[in-house]
Amino acid sequence: MQVILAKPRGFCAGVNRAISIVHQALERFAPPVYVLHEIVHNTHVLEELRQRGAVFVEELEEIPKGAVTVFSAHGVSRAVADQAAKLGLRTIDATCPLVSKVHRRIIRLVNQGYDVLVIGHKGHPEVEGTCGQVDGNVAVVSRVAEIDTLDVRDPERVGYVTQTTLSVDDTEELLKTLRRRFPHISEPERTDICYATTNRQAAVRQLCDEVELILVVGSKNSSNSNRLREVARLRQTPAYLIDDAGEIDPHWFAGIQRVGISAGASAPEHLVTGVIEWLKRQGPVTVAEMAGGEEHVSFHVPELEG
């Protein structure tokens, strides 16, 4: 069997930053350190942090007064930040800087009198955090079919932002429909879909031309990991989303000689290594990494005061 590794794959700068903030908080303050929601959507990352003393909660009321509390990489609404202050929590914001950029844009649009469309998955933490930055006229759009029924105050004063982890292909279809209905819609100078999401999807598209099956390493609730699987399937390449090698079904590989492996932006590289080791135990395997650009993006990790 020939295995080709997607490039790039795995951790992005925002995930690295968020995980580093939790590690630093655990080192600087005595555990437990509380984290509102999953810091990133990966079960292995969460378990490793739990072992060090991180406690993940879904509601602020679960956190003792005065406790150190980290907001996840997906960001939170203003109401959540205000509630944390009222509860006397010591908060640390690990929101990805690219998500924060989307927050600034939606605030600016609302202040300028626009109705704002948030393109993304309803109920996703990032989408809820983005919508919660403003009190203006905001609607979440997930499907093309929803666009015709949108109720806006002024079709000439409509803008949009997007969730950073969307499918580039799916979003383009949504945007084409939005532009037809709102010819003067205000668009960001550059797409809100982050560089890591775009690069990983492009690598999987290229991988589809070289392999017969693709394994995407990532957790089931990871938006960007699910999008990688969808990118492959849209190109008629069988693809499976797995948390780790333990979820592999040997029957997938009947008659398969060329396998591609990618990983979502919140999946650590050691999980990819585990998948390769599993494949090697099944028989002779050669491993190569596809040609691809290096990512040199990094985000500043703030020093936490003791």
Rank of each mutant, 00 (worst) to 15 (best):
T43K: 11
T43Q: 12
T43S: 14
V45I: 14
V45D: 11
L46N: 07
E47S: 14
E48S: 14
E48I: 09
L49W: 00
L49E: 08
L49C: 09
L49S: 10
R50G: 13
Q51W: 05
Q51P: 00
G53C: 11
A54H: 03
V55M: 09
V55L: 11
F56S: 07
V57N: 08
V57M: 08
E58Q: 14
E58Y: 03
E59A: 12
E59K: 13
E59L: 10
E59V: 10
L60D: 09
L60T: 14
E61K: 12
E61N: 14
E62D: 15
E62W: 00
I63A: 01
K65H: 13
K65C: 12
K65G: 06
G66T: 02
G66E: 12
A67G: 07
V68T: 12
V68I: 15
V68L: 04
V68S: 01
V68Y: 00
T69E: 02
T69W: 00
V70M: 05
V70S: 03
F71A: 04
F71E: 04
S72A: 15
S72K: 08
A73K: 03
A73E: 07
H74G: 10
H74C: 11
G75I: 11
G75R: 05
V76Y: 02
S77I: 12
S77C: 08
R78G: 02
V80W: 04
A81E: 15
A81D: 13
A81L: 10
A81I: 00
A81K: 14
A81Y: 08
D82S: 12
D82G: 05
Q83K: 15
Q83F: 01
A84G: 04
A84M: 03
A84I: 14
A85L: 11
K86T: 11
K86W: 01
L87M: 13
G88A: 10
L89K: 03
L89R: 01
L89V: 11
T91V: 12
T91C: 14
D93L: 06
A94F: 05
A94T: 05
A94H: 07
T95W: 09
T95M: 07
C96I: 14
C96G: 09
C96M: 11
P97H: 08
L98G: 00
L98E: 10
L98Y: 11
S100E: 15
S100F: 01
S100Y: 01
V102L: 05
V102R: 01
H103E: 10
R105L: 10
R105D: 09
I106D: 00
I106N: 03
I106V: 15
R108C: 05
L109S: 02
L109W: 06
L109C: 06
L109N: 04
V110G: 02
V110C: 09
V110A: 13
N111K: 14
N111L: 12
Q112F: 02
G113Q: 09
Y114E: 04
Y114G: 01
Y114Q: 04
D115N: 10
D115P: 05
V116Q: 04
L117N: 00
L117G: 00
V118M: 03
G120W: 01
G120Q: 02
G120Y: 03
H121L: 13
K122H: 12
G123W: 06
